[in-house]
Amino acid sequence: MKKLLIAAGCILAMMAGMAQAQDRPLRIAFDVPYEPFEYKTPDGELTGFEVELARAMCEEMGRECEFVIQAWDGIIPGLLARKYDLIMSSMSITEDRAKRVLFSEPYYITPGAWFGKMKTKVDVTDMSAMEGKVVGVQRGTTMDNYVTENMSDVVDIKRYTTADDMVLDLESDRLDLTFVDYPVGEEYFLSEDNYKVVGEPVKLGKGVAVAMRKRDTELAEKINAALKTLKNDGTYDTIMDKYFDYNIKM
């Protein structure tokens, strides 16, 4: 009898635990600032395209959500270490990443673009003109991979942890060019007078998706369904139009 009671107690506790796991808020990680996707307003509130999309997605799924701030460098290890459940921080789908995480359907794509000072006159597609140029990228981004794979013999690549440091080095002429996500460059460079886009933007990769742990296949289905609804019922477009004057929908 005593054993039975203990067993029953254990089962009850487990069920309570499972119920709790269901109700536990989804924790979503962002690397801020990455304007206009995720950043903090002057009064400290988290906002941006992906933050609002995440809120709409959680509402659609009927789940409560918590937002976690995490630097880009450690964002996948943090996910694997269960510090949060989802990454919605402009993470492009790549083969290397897909080995470690599970991606949802992509929810946006932006091109990478070259940014430089107004005086910059170089044809970025001409490898002999690019010879010896010093190029700044953010470490581990799709842009980093693109430059590393295609141009590492030609240009001198400098890798930065944050965009702020990269802007300072372009400002002081340590860099000739930077290769960043178009919206990021728009925010950092085009808002000032002395920078411009150099050459044509390059469409890279398979788009940006929600990343989660490999085992969470059930969650992935729910997220894909929610994203699909948002894309079709106009919610996505409303949020996009608020932050962009061009189309990034995918």
Binding site: D73, G74, I76, P77, R100, R139, N145, D165
Partner: peptide, 22 residues
């Protein structure tokens, strides 16, 4: 490595962020 020098730690950080294998 915080000022873009690829020293030992900088190399480790590059490889870490490429393969996500801390």
């Amino acid at each position: 490595s915080v000022v873009t020098i690829v020293d030992l730690t900088g190399a480790a950080r590059d490889i870490y962020s490429r393969f996500y294998a801390p």
